[in-house]
Design a protein around this nucleic acid. Sequence first.
DNA 1: CACAGTACTTACTCTAGGGTTAGTACAATT
DNA 2: AATTGTACTAACCCTAGAGTAAGTACTGTG
Lengths: 133, 133
Amino acid sequence: MTAIKESSTIQENKRFVFDECPIAYAMDRIGGYWKPIILYHLLGGSKRYSEIRKCIPTITEKMLIQHLKQLENDQLIIREAKPIVPPHVTYSLTASGKALRPVLYALAEWVVEDSKITAKRISKDLKDFPVSV
Amino acid sequence: MTAIKESSTIQENKRFVFDECPIAYAMDRIGGYWKPIILYHLLGGSKRYSEIRKCIPTITEKMLIQHLKQLENDQLIIREAKPIVPPHVTYSLTASGKALRPVLYALAEWVVEDSKITAKRISKDLKDFPVSV
DNA sequence: CACAGTACTTACTCTAGGGTTAGTACAATT
DNA sequence: AATTGTACTAACCCTAGAGTAAGTACTGTG
């Protein structure tokens, strides 16, 4: 944990923005690149640490554990460790975390729909300015 | 624009992850703190630069213009400038941008619902471990 | 006995995102 | 003649987030 700049506008944001713009509040809790990805993979049910890692092969262990800790602190996931060796740790969503399902599904659907729009735009562009092959 | 590290895992992500995890693709396009906030404020219709600034008082001009540029490049918003002085520039959503409405609304709703859950949890905690006032 | 597997931790570096301050062209208003 | 407003741009610096690499404790398996 590093010191946070007092004058940061993002910090100021947190104070007054809650009723002004709910999106800003959301960004404080689930913003960043990896958090929504991790949460998405936990929608299917609780997973072991190593399972999550396999689901997101490009994340480094440092990033994964860092964000799991932050999500736990933020009451979005629950960590359960069996006191055995080798360790057996599972992560699952809290009520807040589960409530994100419609958001993440809407986002996933947007990607599918949007890739169609993009494909259409590209083929239209090609039509307007044909390129020889 | 700065050079992008070739070995970056986020960069690698972009290549293979599209069909594996739609959320990762979404993060590439609308990830970051400010982008969803800007898009949210444009859902109500096109806005002038200065209007957006008033809607998000805590963003700096540099960040605002930077993200507007990126969103324009990413085909999420359209910039229209009238060739007059003083300048008159409006920003509006493209089809892709408009398609984000359900996502952003779901997110806003999550915030409202989640603040209820959080409030309930806090009052329960207070009940379980009463604090003298 | 060496090695794999579990779930991390530590120490280091680097860079992209963010913050601050100042400046631009031009017209209308005061 | 000075100020205001518009929509930016440019120059800096600083830091949180991301990447790399190595190490830990312990056990079960070959």
